[in-house]
Simulated scan of single mutants.
Amino acid sequence: MLFQIVSLLLEVAASVLGGACLLRLYMQQQRIPMSASSGNPLGRFIFVLTDWIVLPLRRVLPAFGRWDLASLVAAWLIELAQFSLLWLFQGLAYSYAAVLILACFGVLRLVISGMTGLVIIYAVLSWVQARSAMADLIDRLVVPLLAPIRRFMPLIGGVDLSPLVLLVLLQVFSIVLGYLQGAALL
């Protein structure tokens, strides 16, 4: 029981912090302004939550084009810390190489679950026609993922089913990722 509680708390903390690092990476890649003066309500929160780990990493990891490697490595380090603590808590039950592999797959799971959440929020906001700074931000984050699907899938009766297709694809990727993780740990 204690292991389950510790595991849950570590998972929540790693998901919030790692997800914030990945959101920072994606927002910067999409060139979404993140300052408070830009009207982005989420940008300042992401900066405050991630600056402590991303800024020191930036001193040694330069950006790769539009990709902020420091944010990506920060997400991986947070996942690595989570799995390392669980590894120690379990009494070194398996090799540390497995922990390194689990951290990589943890980052990929964060990407899939984060995108799934964004698409669901996007779909709900599209139904209620909410116009706000947050709705515009979600739109800018999700539309690049929907654009390739929309090229091949027309509106059906005036309804855009591309978010549903993207959600199904994300679930398929999640299943494949689970199998790949299992194979990598053998």
Rank of each mutant, 00 (worst) to 15 (best):
F3K: 10
Q4L: 15
I5Q: 09
V6H: 06
V6F: 15
L9C: 09
L10T: 06
L10D: 01
V12R: 00
S15D: 08
L17P: 05
G18F: 04
A20E: 04
C21H: 02
M27D: 00
M27C: 11
M27S: 11
Q28P: 01
P33I: 03
M34H: 07
A36D: 12
S37Q: 13
S37E: 13
S38N: 04
N40F: 09
G43E: 01
R44T: 12
F45M: 08
I46A: 01
I46F: 01
F47S: 11
V48N: 03
V48D: 05
L49I: 13
T50D: 07
T50Q: 03
D51Q: 08
D51C: 05
W52K: 06
W52P: 00
I53E: 12
V54E: 14
V54A: 14
P56F: 01
R59H: 08
R66K: 09
R66D: 11
R66Q: 08
D68K: 05
D68F: 00
L69H: 03
L72P: 12
V73M: 13
L77C: 11
L77T: 05
I78R: 09
L80F: 15
A81Q: 04
Q82H: 14
F83G: 01
S84T: 14
S84N: 03
S84Y: 13
L85Y: 11
L86G: 06
W87K: 02
W87L: 06
L88K: 03
F89T: 00
Q90I: 00
Y94G: 03
Y94D: 05
S95V: 02
Y96F: 15
A97M: 11
A97C: 06
A98N: 15
A98W: 09
V99L: 12
L100I: 05
L102A: 08
L102S: 11
L102D: 14
A103Y: 14
G106P: 03
L108R: 06
V111I: 15
V111Y: 07
M115R: 09
T116I: 07
G117D: 05
G117Y: 05
V119N: 07
V119T: 10
I120M: 13
I121M: 15
Y122W: 08
A123P: 05
L125N: 04
L125Y: 02
W127Q: 10
V128F: 09
A130H: 09
R131H: 15
S132P: 06
A133H: 13
D136W: 12
D136Y: 13
L137D: 05
L137E: 06
R140T: 10
L141D: 01
V142M: 10
V143E: 15
V143M: 15
P144Q: 07
P144W: 02
A147G: 05
A147D: 12
P148K: 08
P148G: 07
P148F: 02
I149G: 12
I149C: 09
R151V: 09
R151W: 04
M153A: 15
P154H: 07
P154W: 04
P154Q: 07
L155W: 12
I156R: 12
V159A: 01
L161V: 13
L161N: 01
P163K: 03
V165E: 10
L166T: 00
L167V: 02
V168K: 07
F173G: 12
G178R: 06
G178T: 14
Y179V: 15
G182H: 08
A183S: 11
A184G: 09
A184Q: 02
